[in-house]
Protein backbone atom coordinates (compact mmCIF):
# COMPACT_ATOMS: atom_id res chain seq x y z
CA UNK A 1 0.00 0.00 0.00
CA UNK A 2 2.77 2.39 0.96
CA UNK A 3 4.52 1.71 -2.32
CA UNK A 4 1.36 2.37 -4.33
CA UNK A 5 0.75 5.67 -2.60
CA UNK A 6 4.34 6.78 -3.14
CA UNK A 7 4.06 6.02 -6.84
CA UNK A 8 0.80 7.86 -7.01
CA UNK A 9 2.57 10.97 -5.79
CA UNK A 10 5.38 10.53 -8.26
CA UNK A 11 3.35 9.91 -11.39
CA UNK A 12 -0.39 10.05 -11.73
CA UNK A 13 -2.27 7.25 -13.50
CA UNK A 14 -2.77 7.55 -17.25
CA UNK A 15 -6.02 6.97 -19.09
CA UNK A 16 -4.67 5.34 -22.26
CA UNK A 17 -1.17 4.32 -23.20
CA UNK A 18 1.73 2.20 -21.98
CA UNK A 19 3.37 1.84 -18.58
CA UNK A 20 6.79 0.21 -18.50
CA UNK A 21 7.44 -0.96 -14.97
CA UNK A 22 10.35 -2.70 -13.23
CA UNK A 23 12.99 -1.05 -15.40
CA UNK A 24 16.48 -1.55 -13.93
CA UNK A 25 17.17 1.55 -11.80
CA UNK A 26 18.81 4.33 -13.78
CA UNK A 27 17.89 2.94 -17.21
CA UNK A 28 14.62 4.85 -17.84
CA UNK A 29 16.18 7.44 -20.13
CA UNK A 30 18.04 4.76 -22.08
CA UNK A 31 14.75 2.89 -22.46
CA UNK A 32 13.25 6.02 -24.00
CA UNK A 33 16.25 6.37 -26.31
CA UNK A 34 15.86 2.78 -27.50
CA UNK A 35 12.17 3.37 -28.09
CA UNK A 36 13.03 6.47 -30.11
CA UNK A 37 11.05 8.73 -27.79
CA UNK A 38 12.80 12.09 -27.44
CA UNK A 39 11.82 15.64 -26.59
CA UNK A 40 10.94 16.22 -30.23
CA UNK A 41 8.41 13.38 -30.54
CA UNK A 42 4.79 14.16 -29.61
CA UNK A 43 4.18 11.64 -26.81
CA UNK A 44 3.41 12.87 -23.31
CA UNK A 45 5.87 10.95 -21.13
CA UNK A 46 6.43 10.74 -17.40
CA UNK A 47 9.45 9.13 -15.82
CA UNK A 48 10.11 8.05 -12.25
CA UNK A 49 13.58 6.88 -11.29
CA UNK A 50 14.93 5.02 -8.25
CA UNK A 51 11.50 4.10 -6.96
CA UNK A 52 11.59 1.65 -4.02
CA UNK A 53 10.45 -1.79 -5.15
CA UNK A 54 10.40 -5.09 -3.30
CA UNK A 55 11.21 -7.00 -6.45
CA UNK A 56 14.37 -5.35 -7.72
CA UNK A 57 15.25 -3.05 -4.83
CA UNK A 58 15.08 0.16 -6.85
CA UNK A 59 13.42 0.52 -10.20
CA UNK A 60 12.46 3.05 -12.83
CA UNK A 61 8.99 3.51 -14.32
CA UNK A 62 8.04 5.12 -17.62
CA UNK A 63 4.49 6.10 -18.61
CA UNK A 64 3.70 7.00 -22.19
CA UNK A 65 0.26 8.49 -22.84
CA UNK A 66 -1.87 7.70 -25.88
CA UNK A 67 0.57 5.26 -27.38
CA UNK A 68 0.41 1.48 -27.20
CA UNK A 69 3.86 0.04 -27.83
CA UNK A 70 4.06 -3.03 -30.01
CA UNK A 71 5.81 -6.16 -28.72
CA UNK A 72 8.74 -5.95 -31.16
CA UNK A 73 9.32 -2.35 -30.08
CA UNK A 74 9.51 -3.18 -26.40
CA UNK A 75 11.52 -6.39 -26.71
CA UNK A 76 14.50 -4.24 -27.71
CA UNK A 77 14.62 -2.79 -24.21
CA UNK A 78 15.27 -6.29 -22.81
CA UNK A 79 18.96 -5.59 -23.56
CA UNK A 80 19.16 -3.05 -20.73
CA UNK A 81 16.01 -3.78 -18.69
CA UNK A 82 15.48 -7.53 -18.75
CA UNK A 83 12.95 -7.49 -15.86
CA UNK A 84 10.71 -4.80 -17.31
CA UNK A 85 6.99 -5.38 -17.57
CA UNK A 86 4.83 -3.72 -20.19
CA UNK A 87 1.31 -2.69 -19.19
CA UNK A 88 -1.11 -1.52 -21.85
CA UNK A 89 -3.68 0.85 -20.33
CA UNK A 90 -7.13 1.57 -21.72
CA UNK A 91 -9.63 3.70 -19.76
CA UNK A 92 -7.40 3.58 -16.65
CA UNK A 93 -7.43 -0.22 -16.73
CA UNK A 94 -4.52 -2.56 -17.46
CA UNK A 95 -5.68 -4.56 -20.48
CA UNK A 96 -2.48 -6.50 -20.97
CA UNK A 97 0.65 -7.09 -18.92
CA UNK A 98 3.72 -8.79 -20.37
CA UNK A 99 7.41 -9.26 -19.66
CA UNK A 100 10.03 -8.49 -22.26
CA UNK A 101 11.78 -11.17 -24.25
CA UNK A 102 15.33 -10.78 -25.47
CA UNK A 103 15.19 -10.73 -29.28
CA UNK A 104 17.49 -12.97 -31.36
CA UNK A 105 18.76 -9.97 -33.29
CA UNK A 106 18.70 -6.21 -32.77
CA UNK A 107 18.68 -3.97 -35.82
CA UNK A 108 19.28 -0.23 -35.69
CA UNK A 109 19.65 -0.02 -31.88
CA UNK A 110 23.35 -0.21 -31.09
CA UNK A 111 26.32 1.36 -32.87
CA UNK A 112 29.27 -0.98 -33.46
CA UNK A 113 32.17 0.17 -31.22
CA UNK A 114 34.71 -1.08 -33.80
CA UNK A 115 35.97 1.98 -35.72
CA UNK A 116 37.11 -0.33 -38.56
CA UNK A 117 33.62 -1.80 -39.04
CA UNK A 118 31.87 -1.32 -42.38
CA UNK A 119 28.69 -0.36 -40.47
CA UNK A 120 30.48 2.83 -39.31
CA UNK A 121 31.00 4.13 -42.86
CA UNK A 122 28.80 5.83 -45.43
CA UNK A 123 27.80 2.42 -46.79
CA UNK A 124 24.09 1.53 -46.63
CA UNK A 125 24.67 -0.91 -43.74
CA UNK A 126 22.21 -0.73 -40.86
CA UNK A 127 23.64 -1.60 -37.45
CA UNK A 128 22.77 -5.23 -36.81
CA UNK A 129 23.72 -7.41 -33.84
CA UNK A 130 23.10 -11.01 -32.97
CA UNK A 131 22.13 -11.49 -29.31
CA UNK A 132 24.34 -14.22 -27.79
CA UNK A 133 24.74 -15.41 -24.18
CA UNK A 134 28.07 -13.50 -24.06
CA UNK A 135 26.75 -10.23 -25.44
CA UNK A 136 25.90 -8.66 -28.77
CA UNK A 137 27.88 -9.79 -31.82
CA UNK A 138 28.13 -7.43 -34.79
CA UNK A 139 26.65 -9.02 -37.91
CA UNK A 140 29.36 -7.39 -40.03
CA UNK A 141 32.65 -7.43 -38.14
CA UNK A 142 31.95 -10.07 -35.41
CA UNK A 143 32.87 -7.53 -32.68
CA UNK A 144 31.42 -8.59 -29.33
CA UNK A 145 29.77 -5.93 -27.15
CA UNK A 146 29.75 -7.41 -23.66
CA UNK A 147 29.19 -4.51 -21.30
CA UNK A 148 27.85 -0.97 -21.20
CA UNK A 149 25.44 -1.73 -24.02
CA UNK A 150 23.60 1.46 -23.10
CA UNK A 151 26.68 3.53 -24.04
CA UNK A 152 26.51 2.27 -27.61
CA UNK A 153 22.85 2.99 -28.25
CA UNK A 154 22.40 4.88 -31.50
Amino acid sequence: MTEDRAQGLLISPIRDGTVIDHISAGQALNVLRILGITGTTPESVSVATNVASGRVGRKDIVKIENRELRKEEVDRIALIAPNATINIIREYTVTSKKGVETPAEVIGVVRCPNPGCISNTSEPACSRFLVTPNGLRCHYCDWLVTKEIAEHIL
Binding site: G116, I118, S119, A125, C138, Y140, D142, W143
Partner: peptide, 9 residues
Amino acid sequence: HPKEGAARL
Protein backbone atom coordinates in the same frame (compact mmCIF):
# COMPACT_ATOMS: atom_id res chain seq x y z
CA HIS B 1 38.67 -4.52 -48.50
CA PRO B 2 40.17 -2.55 -45.60
CA LYS B 3 36.94 -2.41 -43.57
CA GLU B 4 35.84 -5.30 -41.38
CA GLY B 5 32.53 -6.78 -42.48
CA ALA B 6 32.89 -5.44 -46.03
CA ALA B 7 32.46 -8.90 -47.54
CA ARG B 8 29.29 -9.53 -45.51
CA LEU B 9 27.89 -6.23 -46.74
